[in-house]
Design a protein around this nucleic acid. Structure first.
Length: 189
DNA sequence: GTCGGGATAGACT
DNA sequence: GTCTATCCCGACG
């Protein structure tokens, strides 16, 4: 079994479509996690994307099957979690940037060494630390344990803006967030 | 083999 | 707002 549809989302769709639809989806890793409130889309023909110059040892998971994880090291310190989309071999993904913590709060507090719920998962590196996501998850299916995805409730208001921390294609509005959420990494404007 | 830069976070002025 | 720790890998050669 290798489903491309999870939590009501078709992961064969373009990254910017999947990124928008992921807002409000609940993601759990070993039962710990919460509701996605911020994402960014990265496509193959996108100078800001790791996939831009083709498959490499680092990004090969991005060219693997959709609805799988792509995990990479950032700045030598943090891990970042992406969901692969489009057909296998295309090389597109969605960076999960922030989560509203809902399940396993005490576990996340211990892993993050932080009390404030707003500081647990409000950034791509933070949420990986809180959910214990590391290189071990690179290429893993999102349809199988320890991952679990639950569909978003209907009618959420999603807002878009430019992506964060990149030096190319800085004006492409492929950052998406849940309107009014206090759990995003940085406010939208 | 070497070099340079990065989809960050946290501490600090 | 600025500074920077610190690791992996991609681009060269």
């Amino acid at each position: 079994m290798n489903p491309t549809k999870l939590a009501g989302i078709d992961f064969l769709a373009p990254a910017e479509v999947v990124a928008r639809q992921l807002i409000g989806v609940t993601v759990l890793v070993d039962g710990v996690g919460g509701r996605i409130v911020e994402t960014e889309a990265y496509d193959r023909e996108d100078p800001a994307s790791h996939a831009y110059s083709g498959p490499t040892a680092r990004n090969f998971a991005m060219f693997g099957p959709p609805a799988h994880a792509y995990v990479y090291r950032s700045y030598g310190i943090h891990w970042c979690l992406n969901f692969v989309c489009r057909e296998e071999g295309h090389g597109a993904g969605v960076l999960i940037r922030a989560i509203e913590p809902l399940a396993g709060l005490d576990i996340m507090r211990a892993r993050r060494d932080a009390e404030d719920v707003q500081l647990l998962c409000s950034g791509p590196g933070k949420l990986c630390q809180a959910l214990n996501v590391t290189r071990d998850f690179n290429g893993a299916s999102l349809a199988a344990p320890p991952f679990r995805l639950e569909a978003a409730p209907p009618g959420l208001e999603v807002i878009a803006g430019p992506r964060i921390g990149i030096s190319k294609a800085v004006d492409v509005p492929w950052r998406f967030g849940l309107h009014g959420s206090r759990f995003v990494s940085r406010p939208f404007r």
